[in-house]
Amino acid sequence: MQNLGLDVFFKGTNFLRLLDGLWVAVRISLISVAISIILGIAVGVLMTSKSRIIKVVSKIYLEIVRIMPQMVLLFIVYFGSTRVFRWNISAEISAIIVFSFWGVAEMGDLVRGALISIPKIQYESSEALGMAASQTYLYIILPQTVRRLIPLSINLITRMIKTTSLVMMIGIVEVLKVAQQIIEANRRVSPNATFGVFAVVFLLYFLICWPISRLASYLEKRWA
C-alpha cells in the first residue's frame, strides 16, 4: 500500500499540536457564535422595526457583510487598524471581531426572517383570547420563531467553523496552520505527509461539523 504519510503524527507532539490548533479554531468560532446569537437576536428584532433609518442602516450593514470577503475584513481589522489608528489588537481578537461582525448580520437576518414569517393571524388569535402582548410573544410567537431559527442558525455555526481556516492568514496558528507546519518540517523525510495530514484535518473538521449538522436536520424534522 502507498505510504499515506501518517507516520508524522507519531513524531514528537505533532498530533497534540494539531489538536491544539483545532481548539484554537473551535474557540474562535464558539466565542463568535455566542456573540452572534446574542447580538443577532437583538439586531433581528430591530430589523423588523418600521423605522426607515433602521431599515437603511441594517440593509447597508447586511450588504457589506455579504459582499466583503471575510479575508479582506480580517486584513482591515488586523493590519489596517494597526497602521491607521495605532490600535494593537491581537490576531485572535481581530478574528473574533470579524466573525462576530459577520455572524451578527447573518443571525440578525435569520431572526428577522423567522419573526416576519409568523402569520399575523397567530398574533390576532392570541390577542382575541385576551392574551397581553407580552404573553403573546412569550407563549406564541417566540416558541415558533425559535423552532424556525434553530436549524438555520446551526447551519451558520458550521459555516463559521469552516471559515475559521482563514484566520491563519493573520498569523493565528490554528489547525490548518499547524498542519502546514508539520508538512513543511517533514517535507524531506515523509513527502507524502501532505496527503495524510490534510486528510486528518479534513476528518477533524468533519468530526466537529457533522454532529452539529445532524442535530440541525433532527430538529428540523422534529419541529416540521
Binding site: 390576532e124 388569535s125 390577542e127 383570547l129 385576551g130
Partner: peptide, 15 residues
C-alpha cells in the same frame, strides 16, 4: 376580550 370569543376563517391554532 374574554367576553368575546372569536373563531377565524383560517385554521389559526397554535402549531
Amino acid at each position: 376580550r374574554q367576553k368575546v370569543g372569536m373563531v377565524f376563517q383560517s385554521y389559526d391554532l397554535f402549531p
